[in-house]
């Protein structure tokens, strides 16, 4: 099994807006290893630090790495800028995708694809692929000409994230609550999209509060985060247990 993502004792702080110069520690030592072909799930209560982990992997400038290591395919990520990480094959589906007026979905994805592959993308072929991917996600073609997420409903924004994932074909897809805000059918569509995307050469790290999206995926490992730490780890059986009992039984663990 080939190692893709290797995180050791990762500590992450964020500059606190309220306190004067203090920075707040959010992640307090995370260990995580994701191999090619795997699907990992991160569960945890609101505010436990799940999105922070995603942002730290993606290199958000607000989140400072205070300790530990972060490697992708054996290479240190910490010195790389966000776009360099993306070009290595990391993709983040945002919990709250940004609205960017004036940039169409098509233009955005084509520019991104050119940046990631380093190749000049031919318009006609690209359009064909985009159309096909949109069809799969049951997105109306006209959305290709709309401005990025401007005026999109919550569910449409999430689909647009998955559309980008399908088009960019990353090695590691980080999905931050891509299923929240989606109706039952849409969850199914997105879940199909992820299933189709996933293969032996890539991996997914999925944050969710809703286990429906996981139904047709073969989850390899489950991590439970509470207050900036993984407090439990296991196989898919953990999902069921938490679904039934909540996080309560783990309260003492940390």
């Amino acid at each position: 099994m080939e190692k893709l993502l290797n995180i050791k004792n990762l500590q992450v702080t964020v500059a606190d807006n309220e306190a004067e110069d203090a920075s707040k520690e959010i992640l307090k030592g995370i260990d995580l290893q994701v191999n090619k072909g795997e699907i990992h799930v991160v569960l945890g209560p609101n505010g436990s630090g799940k999105s922070t982990l995603m942002n730290a992997i993606m290199g958000h400038p607000k989140y400072e790495i205070a300790g530990g290591s972060l490697e992708f395919e054996g290479e240190d990520l910490t010195e790389l800028k966000t776009f360099e990480r993306a070009r290595k094959g990391i993709f983040l589906s945002f919990q709250t995708p940004e609205e960017i007026p004036g940039i169409t979905v098509e233009n955005m994805i084509r520019t991104a694809k050119q940046a990631v592959t380093g190749e000049n993308i031919k318009v006609i072929k690209f359009r064909r692929e985009l159309k096909a991917a949109m069809k799969e996600l049951q997105m109306d073609e006209s959305y290709a000409q709309r401005y990025m997420n401007v005026g999109f409903s919550g569910g449409e924004k999430k689909r647009n994230e998955i559309l980008q994932m399908l088009m960019l074909q990353p090695k590691l897809a980080l999905l931050d609550e891509t299923d929240s805000g989606l109706d039952v059918d849409a969850i199914q569509i997105v879940s199909n999209g992820v299933k189709k995307f996933h293969n032996e050469d890539n991996a997914c790290l999925i944050i969710t509060h809703n286990t429906r999206i996981l139904k047709q995926l073969n989850v390899d490992k489950v991590h439970v985060m509470m207050q900036g730490k993984f407090v439990a780890e296991g196989g898919p059986e953990l999902i069921e247990k938490i679904d039934k009992e909540g996080f309560g039984f783990l309260q003492g663990a940390e």
């Binding site: 993306a86 940004e98 520019t111 991104a112 990631v116």
Partner: peptide
């Protein structure tokens, strides 16, 4: 950050 996360410099 959003655009950079898509590989755009």
């Amino acid at each position: 950050f959003y655009l950079m996360s898509r590989g755009i410099s």
